[in-house]
Amino acid sequence: MSQGGVDLNTSLGYLLKEASSVLRTAMEEVLRPLGMNVTHYSCLELLAQRPGLSNSELARGAFVTRQTMNVLLQALERDGYVTRPTEAPVGKALPARLTPRGRRSLEKATAAVRSVEVRMLSGMTEAEQAAAFRSLRSMIDSLREDPEEPA
C-alpha cells in the first residue's frame, strides 16, 4: 500500500470496479459472435423495455455519451434493428423503436448475457444471491441520495 493510499485488497470500490470490468469482458466475449458489443446490447434492451426513448435517454441508460449513442443509433437504424421518425414529433428528440429484426437479435443477445450472469452467480446460494442484490441496491441508493438532505 502506498503512503496514505488505499489498500486495493480491502477497497470495496476497487473490487466493484474489477467485478464490473470482468463482467463486461465476459459479456463482450459472448456478444461478439452475434455482431454486438455491450453498448449495442444495452441500447436494444433499453428500447425493448421502454420503446420510444430518445438518444439522450438511451445514452444515460447505457452509460455512454450522446455522441456515442447517436453514432450507434445511426448504425442500428441503417442495419434495420431500430426505426426512428424522420422528423421529431415534439421538440428535437427522435424516439427510437426496435424493429422485428432488432427484437430477434435482442433475444439471442439476452440469452448469451444471461448465460454470463448465471456463470457469475454459480458459486452462490440463492440466499447469497439475494443478499448480494440487496447490498448492491443499497450501495447504489446511498450514493444517489442527496448528501445535503437529511435521511
Rank of each mutant, 00 (worst) to 15 (best):
R101Y: 05
R32V: 00
M139S: 09
L46W: 03
S142R: 13
R84N: 07
G80S: 13
S115M: 03
E28S: 04
E107H: 04
Y14N: 09
Q3E: 13
A62Y: 05
E145H: 06
I140G: 07
P89F: 02
N37H: 01
P33D: 08
L15E: 12
G102L: 06
S56N: 04
Y41N: 02
Q74K: 12
N70P: 08
V30F: 06
A112C: 03
M139N: 05
E18V: 15
L94G: 01
E18H: 13
Y41A: 00
D79P: 01
T39M: 09
M120V: 15
E145D: 08
V113P: 02
D146T: 04
R50N: 10
S142H: 15
Q67M: 12
Q74D: 14
L46R: 02
L44R: 04
A96I: 08
A127E: 05
G52V: 01
R137I: 05
P51K: 10
G80V: 08
S138C: 12
S20D: 10
A59N: 09
Y41H: 14
M124K: 12
N9L: 14
V116N: 07
T99C: 04
V90D: 07
S135E: 01
V30T: 03
G91H: 01
Q67Y: 06
V30Y: 04
A109C: 03
S122W: 04
K108I: 00
V6I: 13
K92R: 05
Y81K: 02
S42D: 14
V71A: 09
V30M: 10
S56V: 15
L143P: 06
T65L: 04
R134K: 13
D7R: 12
L98M: 06
R50E: 08
G123S: 10
D79V: 08
E57A: 04
L94N: 02
P89N: 07
L44S: 10
V6R: 13
A127N: 06
L106V: 00
A75E: 15
E126K: 14
V116A: 13
V82L: 11
S42K: 11
A127Y: 02
